[in-house]
Design a protein around this nucleic acid. Sequence first.
DNA 1: CGAGTAGTTGACATCTCTCAATGCCGGTGG
DNA 2: CCACCGGCATTGAGAGATGTCAACTACTCG
Lengths: 259, 259
Amino acid sequence: MPAVSLPAVAPVRVLREDAPPPPATASKTQCSSCHLRDLCLPCGMAGADLDRLDSMRFARRKVKAGETLYREGDRFQFIHAVRSGTLKSSLMLADGREQVSGFHIAGELVGLDGVAQGRHASATTALEDTEVCAIPYAHLTSLSGGASVMQHVISRLMSREILREGKLMMLLGSMNAEERLAAFVLNLSQRFGARGYSDREFHLRMSRAEIGSYLGMTLETVSRTFTAFQQQRLLEVDKRHIRITDLEGLKDRFEVRVH
Amino acid sequence: MPAVSLPAVAPVRVLREDAPPPPATASKTQCSSCHLRDLCLPCGMAGADLDRLDSMRFARRKVKAGETLYREGDRFQFIHAVRSGTLKSSLMLADGREQVSGFHIAGELVGLDGVAQGRHASATTALEDTEVCAIPYAHLTSLSGGASVMQHVISRLMSREILREGKLMMLLGSMNAEERLAAFVLNLSQRFGARGYSDREFHLRMSRAEIGSYLGMTLETVSRTFTAFQQQRLLEVDKRHIRITDLEGLKDRFEVRVH
DNA sequence: CGAGTAGTTGACATCTCTCAATGCCGGTGG
DNA sequence: CCACCGGCATTGAGAGATGTCAACTACTCG
């Protein structure tokens, strides 16, 4: 299914040097002993494969709130695994506004968009102080040697990303503001839950404007929709603090279309 | 970046047998002698890699207009390369309406969404009589043996698909009806051009409703927007026949947001 | 304390959707 | 051959959702 990319936008980019090399923190990490191992890259791996992964010892890198991990057009070298913190990925529109294409929390992988062209097609920015593992993509593919279990893992990850985006397209293409925001909140809830945090109460790391950009609506509509959910006793919202008071109701809102 | 998938949709699928096995047409194809080789899977390959690809001789399959190549939930076995004709991919919404997620013409590959879960997440249907090559995914990955050039090709294809969807999200998230339709027409134009057909005049294989679903708008709005383009002397539209009379103007329309 | 950022809310404009009528075309059957 | 039908596209009128612009508040940071 390739090639449906938008035409002719020819992002008139000023060529520029890549971002400064990662200020390599000395610390390195072994996947098998990471508390995120069941969510992250090693998920589903064992034995020799996992050993091979462990032998790689990925460098960690810290990204302060507001700083970028990589920018649009940077050379693609690493897949990054989020250890802690939150990132957002975004594309620049021709007029300079940004379109947020995803948010990433601990255990999630970022940067697979770079494989196609050897350069990143999006920028990724920290929403709070964040730490990532930098996984050299070339190593990953070369080292996989004989049975390419690793390649398989990567393929699956990429396919999952395709699924994710497909669902997001569906959301953008055919849902209204309430359904979109409900889907967004439920999705966050589920991801926090999977990481052992509360799935009923959490803190948003992104602004209303960033949520709006991601969901294809204005920040005012995001705000109003939060207020509406609160009035419907689905959520309690205080700025960026969210408490889900009626999970089922929220799901209904989202699945309004199921009859 | 996985895991942002929509939550809780849990597509309540009735389990059902997979589609009938492809009525294997006897004819098989050798990639290196295919007229689509520079657009399709073998693109960029040569020497031993291409020989290896040739040794596989993929079976062809015909799909009549309106018939499905695979359905949502079918076991994922093949990547399909379009030889001739047009396909659409779509997801089912909970309420039974479809969301079109892509159109595919000759030389394009379909079905990479299945890698993640071993089952297809979307259905793919022929918009006209269509012929595809069925590429067994398992072969592709196993056979790549030593240097996994093939795996690399697949990864690149998948990454390209991620880019494509990212751009589509951008379109759905932050463009109005005119910009969306202009982007759509320009994209088709470019793809036809790359295949040696006219990039100024072509026949749409999809209905207004399908275009609308793909672009996140109603069929009426698609129709009205075509009419508007015609009044602005950008296009001549006669049902499904399109003639671009002002390519630059159309690009401007699409890039309205620049500066 | 003042400035800046983020969020909320209101009033209004506008775009797109919804519903409905009509036209066009190709196929089918009398 | 013609009438009728169904599917697709076009067009109009009105409704509704969301965007735009603007005011105001609460907080944070110098």
